[in-house]
Design a protein around this nucleic acid. Structure first.
Lengths: 216, 216
DNA sequence: TGGAAGTAAGTTAAGACTTACTAACCTCCA
DNA sequence: TGGAGGTTAGTAAGTCTTAACTTACTTCCA
């Protein structure tokens, strides 16, 4: 009852996330494809089964409920969004701004490669009435912002980033850029504009963090 | 068939948008309340009817379909988001950056007052498979970005805003801030953090537009 | 007195999940 | 070593609920 992704203890090599069997991993891959195409609201157990190539009932051999499937996707989101940026944040061979830049670039890459998947999951799950789902999203979102905020604060202490504006506000700004790109990517897809975003806007944002310092 | 919000030609004083009857306006108000609470995906004709205080069938006296109701809400979104900022953008008594600031403030105020309604409609409609709905969202989104971009370009010509970064990229950044605030407002509501956002981050953003000029 | 606005009670479709059954594959021991 | 018994992963055909929308009938008031 309390288990979410039932599994035969970690399992073999092909498994993606911890606690995912090979087959579960494959099903999650197909389900994530569908979310990229139609959003979380458009996800049905029937479509997932069709995409995997078996019947709806077979899906329930691998996941006890649709909710468990969605929670499995949240784990994936955490794995692709939060875990990598934690690692990027700890790379002491780079300055704080360089690390922030690589985090924003990572997020941007995810948005483009996965067709705005992060914001789709975030926005659609944010209106869910399921407390567990909502809590999971909240914790992923909070974890992401915390990494940014921590790095910004360190950069401020090191005198590398302006202390004029609070780190939590700056973190929100750094999240906003890829978020806006994601909405744009969904509604007005334009690879050229997205290239420009990466080439010009990310450096601009990172630069503005220091820039303000020279003022007053 | 092509009509969307059927109406008795413009109608009396209580009507909100053009082409909305008094009763239609009231129904849209209640429907928007529901979207604020549960998102577009959670909106059902039954809930709308209940909230208004009549039966589901009565709803169909005023809107030919649920889609027409949603398009009516899109009109409202345009009315509260795009129209006001067009006016703000034309206020020649202010500098371009002052106008940009008031636009971002207006958007932020909307997000807080309407519980992130704009991004909910945007994100959820962006995965709709209905071409008309999608087109409507696209056009609202595009209109919003165009106003920002035009203003930024004017500011650049006037030498008031740095020409180093393209206006379309900067416009996306200015959209990203309220978007990020909206997600945060949904997932981690915190009025104090939102106050700080308005007090500190908006000035920071606007300032960064000029700031970069002093470089090189 | 006729039309605008409402109701009760449907219909139809879709979506989450279940049930009963089966074929393939282990395992283990007489 | 071959077959009994168990497990895994699958199927076909349901159930049950909800959601959008309809139909036939009523009520009220200008």
């Amino acid at each position: 009852m309390t288990q979410v992704v039932t599994s035969t203890v970690s399992s073999g090599p092909g498994a993606r996330g911890a606690g995912e069997s090979r087959r579960q991993a494959e099903i999650l891959d197909r389900a994530l494809d569908l979310v990229r195409e139609n959003g979380l609201g458009g996800l049905t157990t029937k479509k997932v089964a069709e995409r995997v190539g078996f019947t709806e009932a077979a899906l329930y051999r691998h996941f006890p409920s649709k909710k468990a499937l969605i929670l499995g996707m949240m784990d994936r989101l955490e794995g692709m969004l939060v875990e990598p940026i934690r690692i990027l944040a700890q790379d002491v061979s780079k300055t704080h701004s360089e690390r922030l830049e690589s985090i924003v670039r990572h997020h941007t890459m995810l948005v483009r490669r996965h067709n705005s998947l992060p914001i789709l999951l975030l926005a659609e799950a944010s209106v869910s009435d399921d407390v567990e789902l909502l809590g999971r999203m909240r914790s992923i979102f909070h974890a992401y912002l915390s990494v940014l905020e921590g790095l910004l604060r360190e950069g401020q202490s090191a005198g590398e980033i302006s202390e004029e504006t609070r780190a939590d506000c700056l973190a929100l700004m750094l999240l906003g850029a890829p978020a806006a790109l994601a909405i744009r990517h969904r509604l007005l897809p334009d690879a050229r504009a997205e290239d420009r975003f990466e080439e010009m806007l990310i450096p601009f944002l990172i630069n503005s963090l220091k820039e303000a310092k020279g003022r007053s």
